[in-house]
Design a protein around this nucleic acid. Sequence first.
DNA 1: CTCTGGATCTCGATG
DNA 2: CATCGAGGTCCAGAG
Lengths: 231, 231
Amino acid sequence: MRMVIATCSVDYDGRLTAHLPLAKRLLLVKADGSVLVHSDGGSYKPLNWMSPPCAMAEVEPDEAEAAEGVVAVWVVQHAKSEDRLRVRIHEVHDDVRHDLGVDPGLVKDGVEAHLQRLLAEQIEVLGEGWTLTRREYQTPIGPVDILCRDATGQSVAVEIKRRGEIDGVEQLTRYLELMNRDPHLAPVTGVFAAQQIKPQARTLAEDRGIRCVVLDYAELKGLDDTTLRLF
Amino acid sequence: MRMVIATCSVDYDGRLTAHLPLAKRLLLVKADGSVLVHSDGGSYKPLNWMSPPCAMAEVEPDEAEAAEGVVAVWVVQHAKSEDRLRVRIHEVHDDVRHDLGVDPGLVKDGVEAHLQRLLAEQIEVLGEGWTLTRREYQTPIGPVDILCRDATGQSVAVEIKRRGEIDGVEQLTRYLELMNRDPHLAPVTGVFAAQQIKPQARTLAEDRGIRCVVLDYAELKGLDDTTLRLF
DNA sequence: CTCTGGATCTCGATG
DNA sequence: CATCGAGGTCCAGAG
């Protein structure tokens, strides 16, 4: 990892054309040759960058550039496309390198897939006597998160989101319309399950006869742990 | 901008739970208090981060942490949610600060909006005698990029993309179905215009009677400059 | 390998 | 303020 604080201008040419006027910025050169240009604000997205695979070459400024005060030019060329980043450096304020080694990587938890697995394993959370038919039940317009049966044996399609918004209700509605045309499945009712359900989404869902269930992730996980402990 | 090279472990708790095992990494603290944790590879996305508005506090490690070799703990708390990032530092290899000032920001060019403007101004590129009706023609399911008329006066809906893929053809198809139900407009034909059109998208479009046009951005811009020079 | 859908998405435009 | 769409999206999982 090379970290350079420099007064520079930057030009990207590739899928679009973009220009950064002269200013003091942080330039990061990673071990794989990728380059990030960061300012002192904004989110995690750099102002400009080149993703790997790519190669960085430091070249001498041409006459016109030298006349403008450019002391070095970085040309970062993507290996598999015509994407190119050009950094014109006017002044270097700092330039240090550190060997970081390979990162062991991120461990994630709590994503939608995990919620789906937990709820599928504990489908009785939705009602006593409910049974799982299957996860990722395929329909011609995509997979329904969970298909199950209520205590009376009637089919129920469950759509799971971390944050329940209107588009999730629309998605479930499309599945229900389709599945209710299938005489082997119909009648199919719907459950919209999410860690958090926005008021608009709840109103729309309930207006369409879809039941809304707020999932407590910690509780589901706790039940899961308890279940595991019993075996 | 504070740049710290440290051996650390990181825990994020908020919209999900994520953990980074002990390793040597770059920690960036921006002027607005946001924190990025970068490894020496991957893309521009940090391994972990906290977006502004947030505040970073450096606290003493508790007894258990100290026993594990933690010398400092950073607690980064989001200002408007319960999102929290915890960085446990075992060793600091470097720690420097630089004042970068406010960045003048990015200047973009070549985006879809620009293509739309250029093509609207030079609609005759699609055919001699073609005339512009209007840009962003509103329909109940969204705006059509360009509505125009061919030399015979028949309406044509134009969908513009930088990269033409199947979803763009589907979008245009929906507009055409809707517009052809309107007796004042029908019959409406379609043009799918993009800088690059994928073979699958072209096949689908042509199968539906939609004409495909590959746009040359440099040429459109050149024609635009020429036009400007005439006035 | 390509394709698909989610994301701690980010970012900008628009009502 | 929220919503909507696009992204140099990135990213992981499935086919």
